[in-house]
Structures are given as structure tokens and as C-alpha cells.
Simulated scan of single mutants.
Amino acid sequence: MPTPKRTTVYDVAREAGVAASTVSRAFSNPRRVNGATRRHVLEIAERLGYHPNPLATALQSGHTATVAMLVPDIANPHFFGPIRGAERRATAADITFMLGFTEESADTERDKIERLARSVDGFVLASSRMPEATTAELAREHNLVLIDRQVEGLPSVVVDNAAGSRQIVDHLASLGHRSLVYLSGPHISWLAGERWRALSAGAEERGMTATRLGPFPPQVAGGGAAADAALVSGATAVVAHNDLLAIGILRRLAERGVSVPEQISVVGYDDIFGADFCVPALTTLAGPQEESGRAAVEILLTKGSTRPSDDGPRRVVLPSHLVIRDSTGPAPE
């Protein structure tokens, strides 16, 4: 059976009684086409089942119909949700989605942006490691949206770590803990600073002692040194920068014969896949990570970073909630 012939721009033009260039402009540059003519062309195109070639439309409009997302560690399960949300929103908009990782390097991140700039319409930067000044400089030339990071004047999507960190403190205080230690991620991490500020402020309000140690690599491999440092601190509760680090801490404590949560409680951030599989299952702060990726691409599609509203660039703050599992318990007497 022969394959049905694909409807072309010339078929639509012939049926609508206009030039093929008018049909192309009706899709790629509608402002240059009379409103009535455009509606007529679109009606004919829909009836004939015509869909413009995305590449051809991109060439004519000056846009690439492509967005890129950069993450610092592609192996970190925390980024699976934002990647999935961003890719699904891009697919729904019929645009191409690219993914790259920067190996926790600000220089690599900047280099990738500059090399890809001519190939994409915008970037989603997840947990960007670049200094604020560098990020602001690049934003003047490129369409950027940040995830898990805020920079003055730029659009961003974050999970509410401030309120979530207060939930962690309240949970530990309710269990009788009077001291906690925050095992921090990289100093260049915006999240590390935000989480510490919220934890220390919450601890002060509750009359608890809070100490920050680190930085530690935000990976399972960083858990050994982090756990040893936590034991030396004498704190009865540990809050890790992320779940990977927390899982590494649990492993090290088990190796040293330290019982969790009977002797020390452990809390993480992100609620990654596997946080409930470790032993004991990890108490952690969760948020709608997939929604963060979707929202970031939505901002790019609406040109949120280059055409801010009267209230400034869009800043989306998503709710967080504490997932209580077996790694936290009453403070030891």
C-alpha cells in the first residue's frame, strides 16, 4: 500500500489562494500577515493536516526552537526530576531539548553556554556554580532561567528551602534534640548557604545549638569524612547537604557501629530515588522537582528573562515538605 503523500506548504497555498511565502509567514512571523488572511491560512492548514517543518520555521524566524539544560552532576538522582519536567514541557511545545553537565565547574558551565549560544534559544541552569556577577553578565547576552539558585534580576525556580529547613529543625526539636550539625556542600553552592541560614536561624529560635562543618563533596563518597566530623562535634542530629551525602554518612556510621537513630539522627535534602531504600530509610526534605524543570522551560517559552514584568523577572517558589522516615528518632539521654 503506497505511503500517503505529505501535505506541503504549496498544497496549503494553492488551496488558500495565496503565495507559499504567505503561508510560511503565517506560521513563522504572524505579525507580517493580515489577521484575516492568517486565520484563513490556518483553517486551510488544519483541514489539510499540514504541520510546518520546525527546522524551516526556525531558519525563517531566527530562532532555533531548541533549549538546553545544564546540570553540575548528571549522575545525581536529584536532577532526574527537573530534567524530566523540562524535557516533557519542551516536547509539549514541539521544541528540541538538549542536556549537558558541567562537572561542578563554573568555568565549564560558562564555556558550554558560550559554545552553545548560537544553537539554542535559551538555557536552564540547574544549581549553577557560576558567581553571581558572571551569571548576570551572561544573562545580558543570553536567555537564562535558574533552578535551585536565585540571582538578583534573573528569573528562577526554587523549592522553598527556608520553610523546609524550619520543618527539619522543628522535627528534631520535637524529638528532644538540643544540638545539630549541618554538613555542608560546596561553598560555591547557593543552596548550601541558604540551607545553613535557615537551619541556624531556626535552631536559635528553638534554643538549639547549630554548627556548620565542611565543605564536603555532595556525593556518597563524601559521607565518610562528613560522618567522622559529625561524631567529633558531639551533636545528636546530623543534617546533610543532600541525600547522597546523607546516604554516605549512614554507611560510615554503620561501619563504625554507631546506631541510627538511637545514638544519632540523620536528615537529608531532596528525597531522591532510593532515599527510602537505604537502612535505615532516610528522613529528608522533599519538593516537586519535576515541576521545577517544567516551570523553568515555561519561563523560557514566555521570554520571562528578556521581557520582565513590571514586578521584575519571574521567581517561582515551589512548596517543600518533610518526609519522616526511620533515620530520625528521640535524642539519646
Rank of each mutant, 00 (worst) to 15 (best):
R294F: 04
A246M: 00
D228Q: 11
P261Y: 13
P218A: 06
G248Q: 08
Q263F: 08
G193S: 11
E255T: 13
A225G: 14
A226S: 07
V297E: 12
R212P: 03
E255K: 15
A203F: 12
A295Y: 08
D228A: 14
D243V: 06
A275N: 05
G287K: 08
Q289G: 13
A201S: 15
R256F: 11
A237R: 12
L285E: 08
R256K: 14
D270K: 07
A237N: 06
I247G: 02
F273L: 09
D228V: 11
E298H: 13
T209I: 10
A210T: 05
E255Q: 15
R256Y: 09
V232E: 14
D270W: 08
T236E: 02
C278Q: 10
A226V: 08
R212W: 04
E262D: 14
C278F: 12
L250P: 05
G222Y: 02
A226N: 06
A286H: 03
A286E: 04
A225K: 03
G287H: 03
F216L: 09
V238N: 03
E194L: 14
Q263G: 03
R251H: 14
G274I: 01
V232D: 14
A226D: 04
C278G: 00
T236Y: 02
V266E: 01
R195W: 02
L301I: 13
Y269N: 11
A230C: 04
C278P: 00
D276F: 05
T284Q: 03
D270P: 07
T236K: 02
A221T: 06
P288F: 01
I272H: 00
D243M: 02
G274A: 10
F273N: 11
Q219F: 07
E291N: 07
G274K: 07
I299W: 01
P261W: 00
R206D: 06
I249W: 08
I272M: 07
V232W: 00
L213G: 06
G274L: 11
T284Y: 05
I299G: 00
W196D: 02
A275T: 12
T236I: 05
Q263V: 04
A221C: 03
R197L: 12
Q219C: 13
N242P: 01
I247T: 06
A286C: 07
G202Y: 12
